[in-house]
Amino acid sequence: MKQKLVIALSLILLIGVIFLIYNDLFNGNPADSTNATEYNLEKLKQIDSSLICYNEVITIDLTMESVNALTIDSNSNIYVAGDNEIQIFDKTLQKTHTIKLDSSANCLAVFDNTLYLGVGNYVEVYTSKGVKLSRWKSFNSKGYITSIAVNKTNVYAADAENKAILRYNLNGVLLNVIGKKDKDKSIDGFIIPSMYFDLAISAENELWVANPGKHELINFTEKGDFRTSWGIASMQTTGFAGCCNPIHFCMLSNGSFVTFEKGLDRIKLHDQTGKLECIVASFSDANAQALDNCSIGARVHDLATDLQGNIYALDAKDKKIRVFSRK
């Protein structure tokens, strides 16, 4: 009797085990959906909507695999570098023509109907119609030009590998190297942890350079002497987030700054003294995780402004130019 009971109980247990397996296999969740060690930036990405002072007014879809750089000339033509070409849009946002390149341009600047492209470690010059004028001698073999800006006397090229600004005249003669680390002259040098090193020339012909590793924007004199800098590291909107930001910036005609930070994917407007004025846009949308995936290559690959003060952001994820206009 006792034996029968034990066997019966055992068999019930056995059936129980089988049921457990069955239940787990067909009805169970594959894994816990909560992440105990979640790293969540959503809170930091949330921005008070009253701080947002720009509206996205229009987007231009691009037919490129990869998009690298964006610039706008004085006639409001838009130049986009990506793949092995440059696409040019007129002020009505219609594509006018495409310039084919031998290799991909990382950055470009336009002045007086002349295009200056940073390609690897050298600068190439084209007419705005696409005729190649010259290819300048590279500074050294390891260079990598990440940003370029032109005014009527100088071409400044930011070289992320050499951590310095190369100053050329319009004919491609290297005039001097700016900001190279030099202990004797107590120049700290740029801290460039990744291939983001941007520069811009203001309407007043002032040279501004981002020093991402120190979260600051530096103003140099024409010849390259340090004049001033501003910027603090902070996850809050008042500063630049993460270890190396801003990665891109451009300047409005009144001397204020438009900056883009990777990581938190936000475009901000700072006044002439560097104080936060407002937020242009923040890419904290529902697909936030997607951004984390591609954030190593930041979402926005370049910024530009036109004479009307509209801000153009080159969205590398959606392959389009987003145009923001002041509210």
Binding site: S66, Y144, A160, E161, K163, I192, P193, S194, M195, C294, I296, G297
Partner: peptide, 8 residues
């Protein structure tokens, strides 16, 4: 994105 990434 990874491919073009270089690190000074």
């Amino acid at each position: 994105l990874y491919a073009v990434q270089r690190f000074p």
